[in-house]
């Protein structure tokens, strides 16, 4: 499907917001969250630019599954490191191991009928997605951070929705047509990034 000028504009805005977040939005955090958020928003920025350059066809590449794992994993790692001190080390190990296993199962010669790569993606994405969705909402409800930080959780829900749509697209059993999914994807990415940036800034 050809990318429209509006799609390109939405992706460019997403990239600019992600760039803002890397350059300005995460100043003052500890070292590891800064690294984690830089990776998350940096991947979002570069992926957005490459999507503009290559068009939607690039989403069919097997590398997308690996790259799209980096964003939720690093974002959730930053959140856990900042707000769940007792889970820091276990979650860091989970993030490293999870990413390594995703890379292995996506690059090793595994027969197509083997469902291991899908199961691994579901587990890694699922845990990271739940963390990004629930943690900001819970801690903002408890008053540990400002109420606007819940927006990060909404961004987490949107990233989960985007991931779900993309994975259905890749498995060849889309709940929506390919055209519809690609039509909403740039807007969804922008909305998600707006939620993250606003949540971090005002939360």
């Amino acid at each position: 499907m050809k990318m429209s000028p509006l799609d390109r504009a939405l992706l460019l805005l997403t990239g600019i917001l992600a760039a803002y977040q890397v350059a300005v939005g995460i100043n003052g955090f500890d070292t590891l969250p800064v690294i984690a958020y830089t990776i998350a928003f940096g991947v979002l920025l570069v992926a957005g630019l490459l999507l503009i350059i290559w068009g939607f066809d690039v989403l069919d590449s097997p590398v997308v599954a690996i790259v799209s794992t980096v964003i939720p994993l690093s974002l959730s790692l930053g959140l856990v490191w900042e707000h769940l001190a007792s889970f820091r080390t276990p979650y860091l190990l989970f993030a490293i191991l999870g990413f390594a296993v995703v890379i292995f199962t996506r690059s090793a010669p595994i027969p197509a009928e083997n469902r291991m790569p899908t199961i691994v993606i579901v587990i890694v994405h699922g845990i990271a997605g739940i963390v990004i969705f629930l943690l900001p909402i819970v801690i903002s409800a408890r008053g540990q951070v400002g109420p606007a930080f819940a927006l990060v959780g909404i961004g987490g829900a949107l990233i989960g929705l985007g991931g779900l749509l993309l994975s259905f697209l890749k498995t060849g059993r889309p709940i929506l047509s390919r055209g519809t999914i690609l039509k909403v994807l740039p807007g969804l990415l922008l909305l998600m990034t707006v939620c993250f940036v606003a949540g971090f800034k005002y939360g």
Binding site: A19, A23, T38, G42
Partner: peptide, 12 residues
């Protein structure tokens, strides 16, 4: 922060 962003773009 700007150096960080430059690093990200360079990594790409």
């Amino acid at each position: 922060g700007f150096l960080r962003l430059l690093g990200v773009l360079s990594a790409g």
